[in-house]
Design a protein around this nucleic acid. Structure first.
Lengths: 304, 304
DNA sequence: TTTCTTTTTTGTCCTAGACAAATAGATTGT
DNA sequence: ACAATCTATTTGTCTAGGACAAAAAAGAAA
């Protein structure tokens, strides 16, 4: 019971999200991690080191650089983890309260209560405001709490499951206009598995009377192209989370841009799109508001 | 417009689901694929070869072996693809009709119609029967149509999005008994992204009055353990699709088994569990019916 | 036929070197 | 002091070809 065994390199990749090649090159360059070896010479990572790797990944997502993190002692890493919470735009009392309530409910694993709280907030504010304001703020706060180590991954899963379920329900109860314009195809790239941003966009676009076709997450580029053609989409909208490596975005977007007919617009929304260099023929949408503006824009353009 | 560029090895891995190591070793052993090289000597796969790889992956999922597929000509592979549809247990006229209707709606990309058809079937049959009979049959038929090349991946995405949405809605409308027993934690392993099986199980277990805590897909083992402890789960139930490599299941299940307290049962459900060797302390559930039986069983055991 | 043993097939891991894109740091010009 | 340009370092991903064990197929024996 409860014995935690040493892990193979494939397992560590899965558990931490750090690639095999990267794990090996870190070991070579920085001397960490330093796994044991089994009888056939393969790496075996003790769980203590895997914990450290988890922490390192967290800190890297916060902007720390691997070189420093890896050449520093275990204790110093823990210090970094306990650092400053960023300052945020002023929030209403209501929002503050809901955030605190959400974090408390998550920590006590009260899924029922969570659902109830979300539902009430949504009813009170209306879907538009709820998504644009509250959900955005919640995402940020939950993400931060996780980065600070206050929440476990499974608690974040719980949060996003509840919210996804609620948003889906909301979308389904909206009057669907099959001939709404424009026709927007929604999905994410293959490694991107975060569906929440997608659902938020779908809510807002559907509220505006557009037709949304959601393929869910992780569609290969080739199939995005096929789907766009099959559904006669006017716009292909992709959602990115911070987890999606910024390095990969530009080349992937370029590739998709070349695959799509030039009459189809390509929108890229989500976290950290600000950092991205402008790409020809790709509309970058750092926020949901920008998405709504783009939609208005598109309609004006097509209108005349 | 529409120009399809050569792809890097990382891209091919994403698009086909075949690992980099495997792609390289196939090239060495069988001479296929045989990518071009760019200025720095890195592989560039022409889209023609990537299409072939997609086909090969499909055929492998059907049970063909790589050695044969890769050493055979392009034409012969296409012949294999057009082969026999397997024979299935007798189905009711209703079910047959719905299956045909679903495939037609999918091919014409009529999401509204799809949703309507599903909803009607569910209303008519009741959730229990709908999940156990119709959804199972639909999954199989859609999966087969895809393997035969009749459906594109994006059409399969569409199917599963609609169904997931419907099942989620159904679950939410069930009377949730927060004190229902047993407490079942539902999730999948990190590479497993198919949420449909999970939702189907959640429907059935909830209907039986159990408390389901769904973490969604792709939870690291470490977090499954944490969640099980935090939620005081009686049972941890994992869902596998055929896409999940059979090779990996046994070691992963063993690993999780060792991490969990022995008082917590571990259930592994989903396709191809029959093929799996028995694992000590892990209950294998090849079908949903087996899952329901296991639940009844568990209750009797605890009852006395 | 079934069961056991041998051979082939197949995916994953290994080392150690290379290189370009991204980032940080230094230098220069306004 | 601040912005822009250049240089140096950092970092992830790719390459080659060898190795090995687990799975599957083929062969042998009951």
């Amino acid at each position: 019971m409860d014995k935690i065994v040493d892990m193979s390199i494939a397992t560590v990749e899965r558990e931490t999200g750090i690639g095999k090649d990267t794990l090996r090159v870190w070991e070579r360059r920085y001397g960490f991690p330093q796994p044991l070896r089994d009888s056939k010479g393969e790496r075996l990572y003790p769980s203590r080191q895997v914990d450290q790797l988890r922490l390192i990944k967290r800190l890297m997502d916060q902007g720390h650089r691997p070189g420093r993190l890896l050449s520093v002692s275990e204790e110093e890493r823990l210090e970094l983890a306990a650092a400053k919470p960023a300052i945020h735009p002023a929030r209403s009392k209501d929002e503050q309260d809901l955030i605190q309530q959400t974090l408390d409910l998550l920590k006590s694993h009260d899924t029922q209560g969570l659902r109830l709280a979300f539902n009430q907030a949504m009813m009170r504010q209306g879907l538009h405001q709820f998504v644009l304001g509250t959900v955005v703020a919640l995402n940020r706060s939950v993400g931060e709490a996780w980065r600070r180590g206050e929440l476990e991954i499974f608690e974040e899963h719980l949060y996003s499951e509840q919210l996804k379920s609620l948003l889906r329900q909301a979308i389904n109860s909206l009057p669907a206009d099959a001939n709404g314009h424009p026709r927007i195809l929604l999905t994410t790239f293959p490694e991107e598995q975060h569906a929440l941003g997608l659902l938020m966009a779908e809510c807002l676009f559907t509220l505006e009377g557009a037709t949304c076709i959601s393929l869910g997450t992780q569609t290969p580029l080739f199939d995005i192209r096929l789907a766009a053609l099959a559904h006669r989409a006017d716009i292909v909208a992709l959602s990115f989370s911070t987890a999606f490596s910024v390095r990969q975005r530009a080349p992937l977007l370029n590739q998709l841009r070349e695959m799509l007919p030039s009459t189809v617009e390509l929108w890229a929304g989500g976290m950290a799109s600000e950092k991205l260099p402008a790409i020809d023929g790709v509309v970058l949408l750092p926020t949901l508001e920008a998405g709504l503006a783009a939609l208005k824009n598109f309609r004006q353009k097509v209108g005349d």
